[in-house]
Each structure stands twice: as C-alpha cells, then as structure tokens.
Nucleic acid binder design. Structure first.
Lengths: 187, 187
DNA sequence: ATTTTTAATTGACATCGTGTTCATAATATT
DNA sequence: AATATTATGAACACGATGTCAATTAAAAAT
C-alpha cells in the first residue's frame, strides 16, 4: 500500500531542503523553522512526519545505506579480495550517482555517528572473513579500512575526475598492498 | 602574563562539562544552559569567554592538535616512512594520555569537520613527500591514511589493550604494506 | 462525479533557550 | 587595606519549539 501523493511530496521537499541546508551548516544549527520555510511546508506538518532535524537526517542516511546494502547483496561477492573489485566499483558508482546526498552526509558538517554505522555494516558483511588474523587486529583492520574508504569518497566527490572504477582500484590497492604497492605501480 | 585564577578555573570546569556532555549527545543538542548548570558557572560568565558550544569545542580541539603539533616538531622526522615509527608511537601515546578528550572529540557524536582539520594538518607536514606519486593519487592517499588512522584511534581508545607502540606498528604496516603485509606477518 | 477519507494549512498557545545588561558580591592583585 | 578584575543573580526582549483545534485542500473510494 503506497502512501498518499501528498505525503511523498512533503517528505521529498523536506529531504531536499535539509540536504541543501547541510551544505551550509551543521545539523545542530539548522532550525526546523528555516527548514520548513525553505521547503515551503507548514511547521506542523513537519512534526507529523519527523521528530526533529536529526530524525529526518537519519532517515535520509538509512535510505542511502539501504542502496549500498542492495548492491552488496545482489552482487556476487567472494571471500577473495581481488574478486570483489567489481562490487567495489558498483558501490563507488552508486555513491557517485548519489553524489549530492553523499556529500551532504559526509561533508564538513556531518556527524561521525554515520561513519560508525557504515563500519558496523561492513563488519556485518564480514568482508575480511577469509583472512587469518587475530580478532583484535581484525577490529583495527575494519576500522582502518572503513574510515579510509570514506575518507577517499569524501575527497573524490569534491572535484575528483576519476571514474568509479579507478577509485575502486585505488582503494583496493591501498587496502591490500599499501603505499608501497602504489609506489611500485608508479602511480 | 598568566590569567586570573578564576578565569582558569571557569574555563577548566566549562571544558570538562562540555567533554562530559559530548559523551552523551552531539554538540548541536547541547545547550549552553545545561552546560553551565553542569559546570556550576553562571550563563553570563560563559558568554564572556565563548561565543557558543561550538566555539568552546573548537578551543578544546585546537589545544589537542597543538599537542600533536609539538610532537611532530620536536621529534626527529625523516622522509623515510619506516623511520617515522618513533614519532608515530609518541603521537599515539599522547592520544592515549588524553584519552578522555580524544574520545569525546572522535566519538560517535563528533563532527567530521575536526577530521578535516587533521587531514589538512598532515598534508601540511608533507609526510608522504618523498613518494613519487601523481598529485591526484597523493590526495587520495592522504585522505585514505588520515581517515584510516583516526578510525584506528577511535577503535583503540574504546577498550583496546594494545600499547601505543603496537598501534603505531599496526598503522605503519597497514599504511605501507596493506592487508597482505599484515597477513604475511601472520598477525 | 460525488462522497468520503486523509493530509496540509492557519493561527494561536505556553514553554524554553538565547544573548545581553546592570547592579552586586566575591576574589585576585597591588 | 585599597583597588581592580571577575563571577553572580536577576531581569529583559526575542526567537524557536512542540502542540492543538478549526479549517481548507486534495487524494482515494464509490
């Protein structure tokens, strides 16, 4: 049962308005009032959909993560790191397609909370499961890699000319071989 | 000319109060009112020292970065990555010593803005200057490494048993040799 | 096309945090 | 002890908040 057209419209304009505002200032400095004025939606209407700005932000974020989730579920994924290159490319492509939202979410004014969710998400996918590492080391590896990948995304989406595939290759190389691997390839 | 004892006291309790509150909620949800109540300082006094919560947060952060800056300046630092292990250890030790502040700053509720500052800081230090990489790749490398290192710090300070030296070794290995290097060592 | 149902708007409301000010009290400095 | 500086307490106007009931608008159902 799909929701009312009006509901979808209201939610859409509110989401767009928040994303735009997130480019200007941190979420905590955004008021519900200005958000509604920008979206041309009554303030009372906002409160019938969301608790506050943070609630709306979280919903936008969850949709984004949901998209990545779908890719990871649908894409063939072997325990072998080399073979997950295709999936990486698809993920980065997805992020590129949703550049406007991603930049708002990972931009200067965003919360690291979101980063924590992505980390948990990757751990849940067990992407390093095939490696025989100590549990502690595994923890740090996930932390290092998840944060590192997000750092690259952030930099890339600002003005990066590279294709999703190139970025995926860089990330794969940096993760598996490190700086020395990059230097070896003479990039 | 050192400042008045009262001034130092006021600033100290306000800083402590904010750090404590940052464990509970994002900076944007913290009000000046509750901050002052927690610190038992008059609200008017707060405004004679800081503009708002964000201003106070930034000052705490800047002090932290200042400490890292001192270490990087005082410590011998060669262009050779392997030789910077000692400096890395000292930095991680410093972060460990200031665990309470660092965790507040890098915790779930912190702003990525701070992460951006650390990235800029590392780039300014030109730590990968000796590597012959394309400028674009260099950008991504800094982004990847800075974010990755911070991710490790975040994970480590929660409940990590490792010493600063061990963490420094892990980061150095992950950065220079990647996952394969870690697996090779059988960690 | 008309009825029915659902959602959005309008205007109002008490409440709360904000940022500032001023007289007063407390505490450094000299 | 006298002076200068800082913190306090109380009050203020202002703006954002969250909620509400009556009304209008628009969708879905018949």
């Amino acid at each position: 049962m799909k929701s009312d057209r009006r509901v979808r419209y209201t939610r859409m304009v509110l989401k767009n308005a928040l994303i735009d505002l997130m480019y200007e200032k941190p979420i905590g400095k955004i008021t519900v009032k200005e958000l509604c004025e920008k979206a041309d939606v009554n303030r009372g209407t906002f409160y019938s959909h969301y608790i506050d700005q943070f609630d709306l932000q979280k919903q936008i974020f969850d949709e984004l993560v949901g998209g990545i989730d779908q890719i990871m579920d649908s894409s063939y994924f072997s325990a072998n790191i080399e073979r997950s290159g295709e999936m990486l490319t698809r993920i980065y492509g997805y992020l590129q397609d949703n550049k406007h939202i991603v930049m708002a979410m990972l931009g200067e004014n965003c919360t690291i909370e979101l980063q924590g969710e992505i980390l948990a998400f990757l751990k849940g996918k067990n992407i390093f499961g095939s490696l025989l590492l100590q549990p502690d080391i595994m923890e740090y590896l996930y932390a290092f890699t998840a944060s590192g990948c997000l750092g690259v995304v952030r930099r890339w989406l600002i003005d990066g000319k590279e294709s999703a595939e190139e970025i995926a290759r860089f990330v794969a190389m940096a993760t598996t071989q490190g700086v020395l691997g990059l230097a070896r390839k003479g990039l």
